[in-house]
Every structure is written in structure tokens, then in C-alpha cells.
Amino acid sequence: MENINFNNDNSYFKPTAEELAKVQQSRVPLNTTRCTEKWVNILNSWRNHQNVGYTYTLESLSSNEQIEKEMCEFLYGVRTKKGDKYSRASLKNAVASISRHLKNSILYWNYNLLDKNSFPKLYATLDGTLKEMKRLGIGAAKLHEGLLRRVFLWICLLGCPRGGEHYKLLIDQFEDTEKGFIFKKFQQKNDQGGNQHTFEILFPSDIADKVEPNADIRKYISMRHPNCTTKEFYLGISNASGQCYLNRALGEKWIRGMFREICLVCDIDISGRNISNHSGRDTAIQSIFDAGNEEIEAMAISGHNSSADEVLEDKELPKSNTINKNEASKDKEQI
């Protein structure tokens, strides 16, 4: 057998620690990274404030008991730059984000701050704070904000758009009929087949007082200003009295985190899960298969022209990217 001299072979190399860290970090969605950085900055600003006076970082602590104590203080004491309390969804997001930060910063620290068994006082503080805020009506979503979230969720589950499609949805893509709304969907360049064309998806009829996607979408459209000239479907939320939505498109930042925000508002634990707007599409496709339907049914909604796509071929999506029907069956008043 011929001896191979690997010393002169450039096929092998030893990656640097920085290269490994970069590829490991690449699996984390950009939105998750941004959210973590945001809340770590807010945490540190609170800790350094003269009324708080912590001169060290949270990750420098070795005692979970002390970490829990200071996190309880942070949750109840943190305020926005205007001096208001953060929304209930934001506070949940804060705990999840800081928990991720501690996992990445403290060697062998493999805990979840949202785990009530490991951090019972923190869980009680968060739960008590959220209930107090709900009772006082603090940080609650406006009714038209909750309606916007419901409409977004219906479109995710019934129209199966890709994550990026939400930014470009137009009001003209929705036609109201006696049977239900028709969603005129533009096929994406990277869908199977490659050609861009429109195909139509008929949303199912409403079930009164139980499942009412068409009623929600119809109500949302009716609340657009009579002189609204914005062609985009999602509109910015107005703070003015007597006006629900602005005559301009909803900001990309709002849309980008919508599905994740819905999960948090509905008390769905998404810590350690890669949840994004595309998760709505993944969840819809998986639900079609879970209901016992064939590939052709999924293809009719998703826009795939072939079953060669791995999602359709395997009929199984990563659970970390989807929301199951038990998690999704929340009271619609929560969103």
C-alpha cells in the first residue's frame, strides 16, 4: 500500500478557535442575537445606575442564589427610558435573553432562568409581576394591536407564506368572498419550479365563536383609514385617539419579530428554540401532515411544485422550529 504524505496535503487544516466560534454562532438566528444583546445592555445599564449600584456583571457571580436575587430585583425595578414599565411580553423576553447570555458566558452553567424548579423565586417574581401588570392594565397590548397579531397568525397558518413574504404582503392580495378570503399568493423565485406567478388559497369558513380567521381579517381591513393610500397589508399602529392604524406600512422591525412575540404573549416557552416568522410556515406544513393529509395537500398551500423538497419528503420538521397544536390553542384574547 502506498504511503501517503499528509504533510504536503492541503486538504486538512486545524480551524482556529475564532473560526469554530463563528460557525457555532451562525446557527443562532440573527433576531435572537440582537434580542440577547439588547437585554444584556439594558441589564448592565440598570446595574450601573446610581440607584442600583452593582459594580460587577451578573455573569461574574458563581452563586445561582445571588443570580436569582439580582434578577428578581431587575425584573421588578427595570423601566424604559420614559420611566414606564416594559410590556409583559418584553419582560418574558428579557429573562429568556439573559438566560442565553449566562449560558454563553459562564463555564459549565447549563441552567434556564425560566425553570421554576431551579429558580423558584425568580419564577414567582416574574409571574407575580405579570399578573400585577395585567390587573392594573399596564403593558397590555391595544385591542387593534392584538387584532393585528391574530391576523398575522391566521395568514401564517392558512396562507403558509415564507418568513420574508410578510414584508411584501399587499392589501390587493386579499379578496373577500362569501366562502372566505382568497389569498392571492406570489410564488417565490426559490420555490420549486422557479417561475413567479400567482396562485390562490381559499381560507376555510369561520366557526362562530371558535375559529374566525375571516372575521378577524375583515375587521382588520375595515379599520384601515378611509383615505388610506398605503398598498402594504400590514399597517403601523397608531397611538392617536380614534385612529387604529397609520397610513403607512408597519416597520420591518415589528414584522420581523411578530411570530416570536405572539409565542411570548401566549406564554409559550420558546427558550432554546429557533423561532422566527418562517416558523409559521413550518408549523402550517407540519400541521397538514399531522392531520393525516397527503403531500399534494401540503403542496397546494405551500406552493411547492415537487415533493423533492426535504420538508415534504420527510414529512417532519424540527420541533424547535414549530409550535404544536396544544401550544397554539390559546385564548385569542391573549393576542
Rank of each mutant, 00 (worst) to 15 (best):
L148C: 04
A141V: 07
S60F: 08
G146C: 11
T80Y: 11
K319S: 13
L235N: 00
N93P: 03
R273T: 03
L75G: 01
E132A: 11
L122A: 02
K219Q: 09
L20T: 11
R88W: 05
K131E: 12
W39Q: 00
I296C: 08
Q25D: 15
I138Q: 04
N51C: 07
N48C: 14
I270K: 00
K134Y: 10
N41F: 07
Q24D: 13
L30S: 12
L114D: 05
A328W: 12
K14W: 15
L169F: 12
H225E: 14
L169E: 06
K85M: 09
D115Y: 02
E261S: 13
L102M: 05
L317W: 12
A298M: 04
K168W: 14
G164Q: 12
K85N: 13
F233I: 01
D191T: 06
L130F: 04
E295V: 14
T322F: 01
I207T: 12
R281K: 07
S118Q: 13
K315N: 11
D9S: 08
D282F: 09
K82C: 10
Y56R: 08
V95K: 00
Q173I: 02
A94C: 09
R100E: 13
A240N: 15
K325G: 06
I237N: 00
E310T: 10
L43F: 03
K330N: 09
E212Y: 09
A124W: 08
Y167M: 06
T36E: 12
S99F: 03
D216P: 05
